[in-house]
Design a protein around this nucleic acid. Structure first.
Lengths: 195, 195
DNA sequence: GTCTATACGCGGATAGAC
DNA sequence: GTCTATCCGCGTATAGAC
């Protein structure tokens, strides 16, 4: 055959990476198969030897992106709560993340489109997020803090990106970092208010 | 003339309401002018006597939606912080809001598309959000709590809608309510933990 | 202001050659 | 597996009648 046996696997990975970046940047509905394949360096006809439909691509993209994101959470080495939170804030709640959705978390970029997707996509997303919740609950104490942390991070990034000026974007993500500190590290290592 | 003088104003309001619901439900990129006008009870040709382009419609929709949302915030009558927060949670962080994006806040539904829009849309959005921040800061104490509250609400709803099962959706918004209570009402009116 | 009709491009998807 | 070529539908937007 003209193509090496691992070529298909390699190309599929490549397609997922390119599709992830393109769709996070422009929105899944706004990217076409043609433009996507062109960005990947091949022609549109080759698409359907990897995915049976555009919707299947969406599911594959979201799954790969969520796995990547969770791996980053797992990679946080800190045991101390304040240090852990500081590490995550420096990774997620940054101006670089605000400016570059194509290289960032899938949820602020495509969350609304996931919400509108079919049950298969949402099922997969839910399983991944429940994994993330379990992992976070061990670090943060309980499920409330786990979900609250995720929602705060995702919402803050979404909000910051909808702002026009960098100053306001910066204000939003800075506020979110402080808000998380107040909410999460307060119980364990803050002295009670004197009043 | 065949149309009453206030007909245009009335129709434009009607169009904005229909467009708001349709786009929050399906995404702005996914709704066409034709389907939109059909849902509004007229034909597509009439669209351009109200808006010069689809993009102008987007700006008008986002502006109207944000104004509505801020009016709801202003309408919260409670002075007591805990009561104020309870009122907002019962209004925003509900299963009904999760299930019906077409009748809900524009940010979880169209936030990512606002982020990808031109500077005019984001400028307008920023002005509205700065107003909301100012108003919330008076109630919640400072800008940190204001932005944190908004991000938490928006992120929680986005996250819940991306989940497949109602139980998980409920878990997310319940966690968010508790998380906000911890973060916001803790300083003022909670008794310190006994431990 | 709204209608019908239409121009024109790009969307997803398929067929058959190599 | 990838390429070229193509079908078909829907997208935005416009022109002209009423």
């Amino acid at each position: 055959m003209r193509y090496s046996p691992e070529h298909k696997t390699t190309m599929k990975k490549h397609l997922l990476a390119v599709a992830g970046a393109e769709t996070k940047k422009k929105g899944f509905a706004a990217v076409g198969v043609d433009g996507l394949m062109h960005a990947a360096g091949v022609t549109s006809g080759a698409f359907y030897s990897h995915f049976s439909s555009k919707n299947e691509l969406f599911k594959a993209v979201v799954e790969a992106e969520l796995q990547d994101s969770i791996q980053m959470l797992v990679g946080n080495p800190h045991q101390d709560l304040a240090a852990w939170l500081h590490h995550e804030s420096n990774r997620y709640l940054t101006m670089s993340h605000v400016r570059h959705p194509e290289a960032g978390c899938v949820l602020p970029a495509l969350g609304a489109e996931i919400a509108r997707a079919d049950a298969g996509v949402k099922d997969m997303c839910e399983q991944q997020m429940l994994d993330a919740r379990n992992m976070l609950a061990k670090r943060l104490g309980d499920d409330t803090a786990a979900w609250g942390f995720i929602a705060q991070c995702v919402g803050s990034l979404l909000l910051a990106r909808a702002m026009a000026n960098e100053e306001t974007q910066q204000e939003v993500i800075q506020a979110s970092r402080q808000f998380l500190q107040r909410a999460i590290t307060k119980d364990s290592d803050r002295t009670p208010p004197e009043k």
